[in-house]
C-alpha cells in the first residue's frame, strides 16, 4: 500500500474518532439543564437563582423579639406570642407573576419559619405580593387534611374548630399595662374570619440571578399594629369580623415594610 493511502486512512480514522465522540450540551452539574451524557459544553447551561425572604419583627426600626416590650405614651405591651399566616406569595413584574408559595406560617417560637428560600429562574421583578391570612378555600380545610407539621397542621394550634370553624389568621398574645404602673395583664388578639383576609403588595426591585443570591428582608413594625386600638374593648375569640378585628388586620397589613 502506498504511504499516502496509509496516511489518508489514518487521518480518516482520526477524524472519525474525534468527531463521533463529541456530545455537545450543558456539562455543568449545577445547572438545571445539566446533561450527564454531554462532554462538550455548548454554553446552553441555565441556572436558577436563589431568593431568601426573611421576616423580621421590629419596633420603631429596632429588632424586636419575644418578651420584648413596646413602650408608648399610652401603654406598654410585652409580646409573648405572635403567629400569622401569609399565603399566595408571589413576585410580580409588568410581564409576569412568579408564584412562590401557597401558604406560610410565621411563628415567633419557630426559628425556621422566619425565612423562606426559593430556587427560581433568573429574572427581574418589581414587587413582592402576598395575602395576610388565608383564602376561603384554604380556610375551609381543617388540620385533619394535613400532616401535623404542615403550616395548616394540628401542631400549629391555629385552628378554631367550633362553629363557625376558621383558622386564626393572626395571633398576638402578651401582657399589657395601660396604666403605665408596671401592672401587666394578659392581652390576646386572635383574628379569625375569612373576611379578614388582606392583600399586601410591597414595591421592591428584585433581581434573581445565579451569581448573586437575592435577599428580601421584610420588617413587621409592631408599633403600628396597635394604632388607634382601644384596649378596653374585648375581642370575641370565636371567628368574627368586627370593627376591632378589621382595624387590627388593617394595621397589621400596613406594618410590612421592606428593610
Amino acid at each position: 500500500m502506498k504511504i499516502s493511502h496509509i496516511f489518508n486512512l489514518v487521518l480518516f480514522g482520526f477524524l472519525l474518532t474525534f468527531f463521533s465522540c463529541k456530545e455537545p450540551g450543558c456539562t455543568d452539574a449545577n445547572a438545571i439543564n445539566y446533561d450527564s451524557e454531554a462532554n462538550e459544553n455548548d454554553n446552553s447551561c441555565l441556572y436558577n437563582g436563589s431568593l431568601n425572604i426573611e421576616f423580621r419583627l421590629v419596633n420603631d426600626n429596632q429588632a424586636f423579639g419575644k418578651y420584648d416590650t413596646i413602650q408608648s405614651q399610652d401603654y406598654s405591651f410585652r409580646l409573648e406570642k405572635i403567629k400569622f399566616y401569609i399565603s399566595n406569595i408571589q413576585l410580580k413584574s409588568s410581564d409576569e407573576n412568579k408564584f412562590l408559595s401557597e401558604v406560610h406560617l410565621y411563628d415567633i417560637d419557630n426559628t425556621n419559619s422566619k425565612s423562606l428560600v426559593f430556587d427560581l429562574e433568573e429574572g427581574t421583578f418589581d414587587s413582592l405580593y402576598f395575602d395576610l391570612g388565608l383564602n376561603s378555600e384554604q380556610n375551609s380545610t381543617t388540620p385533619a387534611n394535613y400532616d401535623v407539621n404542615h403550616p395548616l397542621g394540628l401542631n400549629q394550634n391555629t385552628f378554631w374548630a367550633m362553629e363557625p370553624s376558621s383558622y386564626i389568621f393572626v395571633m398576638i398574645e402578651g401582657k399589657i399595662d395601660t396604666l403605665l404602673g408596671d401592672d401587666y395583664y394578659p392581652l390576646t388578639y386572635h383574628l379569625a374570619h375569612s373576611d379578614l383576609l388582606r392583600n399586601v403588595a410591597i414595591e421592591k426591585p428584585v433581581d434573581i440571578s445565579y451569581e448573586n443570591p437575592s435577599t428580601i428582608i421584610v420588617d413587621v413594625d409592631l408599633s403600628k399594629i396597635f394604632d388607634s386600638v382601644d384596649f378596653s374593648n374585648d375581642l370575641p375569640h370565636q371567628s368574627t369580623n368586627n370593627k376591632l378585628a378589621r382595624l387590627l388586620m388593617d394595621n397589621f397589613s400596613n406594618s410590612f415594610e421592606i428593610h
Binding site: F159, W160, A161, M162, H237, Q238
Partner: peptide, 14 residues
C-alpha cells in the same frame, strides 16, 4: 368554646 369559659384555647379539638 366562648369567652365565658374560654377553655378551648388550651384544650382544643380534636
Amino acid at each position: 368554646t366562648t369567652e365565658k369559659g374560654d377553655c378551648f384555647h388550651c384544650h382544643s379539638y380534636p
